[in-house]
Design a protein around this nucleic acid. Sequence first.
DNA 1: ATTGAAAGAGTCTCAGT
DNA 2: ACTGAGACTCTTTCAAT
Lengths: 156, 156
Amino acid sequence: MAAKLNLDKLDLQIIHEMMENAEISYAELGKKLFVSGGTIHVRIKKLQELSVVKGTKLHVDLKQLGYDVIAFIGIYLEKSSLYDSVARELQKIPEIVRLNYTTGNYSMFAEIVCKDINQLRFVLHDELQKIKGIERTETFISLDESLNRNVQVFKE
Amino acid sequence: MAAKLNLDKLDLQIIHEMMENAEISYAELGKKLFVSGGTIHVRIKKLQELSVVKGTKLHVDLKQLGYDVIAFIGIYLEKSSLYDSVARELQKIPEIVRLNYTTGNYSMFAEIVCKDINQLRFVLHDELQKIKGIERTETFISLDESLNRNVQVFKE
DNA sequence: ATTGAAAGAGTCTCAGT
DNA sequence: ACTGAGACTCTTTCAAT
């Protein structure tokens, strides 16, 4: 699965820079990394072909858009084998933005983003309780997000 | 804090589209939403000034880059008041990519991304155990990520 | 593989509506 | 507030190294 990609320092530097700011021009990024804009272009094209780079996404302030509640949900399943069917049901709930099958206490771990506590309660009470296979859930509401960053793919 | 922003349908549609693909041109996006490219431009400028839009980020495949392990860590503190100092220490660990102060069982909740299990063990054993104020931790290793998406800011 | 230049495409500004 | 056109900047291609 994880093929030998053989990415060099420049590749990682480009990814590192653009993971924070994808708007920078090739010329400017080239200047920063001491190569020409053309080289940046060639490398990015290569990274896209290797599907290391999958595109760019707009970064928005969710609070400004009225999404004030982030919560994490630990989910206990009646049987582990129900994972796929429960995952399929959870996927239908747009407020669920992330879902992981995990080791440890919980069978699965979800993240949910809501406009307010009422909406969170609605999803937890009305939508989650309907799903067959969920034994019980534990909810952790985020009171403060002190860190949210990318992995550091290049250091030094 | 959450000021009255008065965003209309078009603003939300632009955000919705560009949250998935920020590379689309103004002309093309305008065609899709039945306005001119100039209007798209004006709206995006407005959204940037309101700091609803904070920029664009490169979307990369972390597995391809060798980051194979995602884990979640529930952290119990000796005293809740230690949150700030513990958060400051956790921030120094580059593998920790997210940190939330939460209600419920745990005092705080972290997400960590590592190249392999050895690196995860190193962070958990060597780095986390050094931090004063952490009582104990529970780790949930992700075996499968079945969902990772953005909030749906516009529907219909 | 990298470069620099030319062609093509996109962004940004602005006067008109 | 939206539009379209012109000025400007960036991306993309390509021949040379």
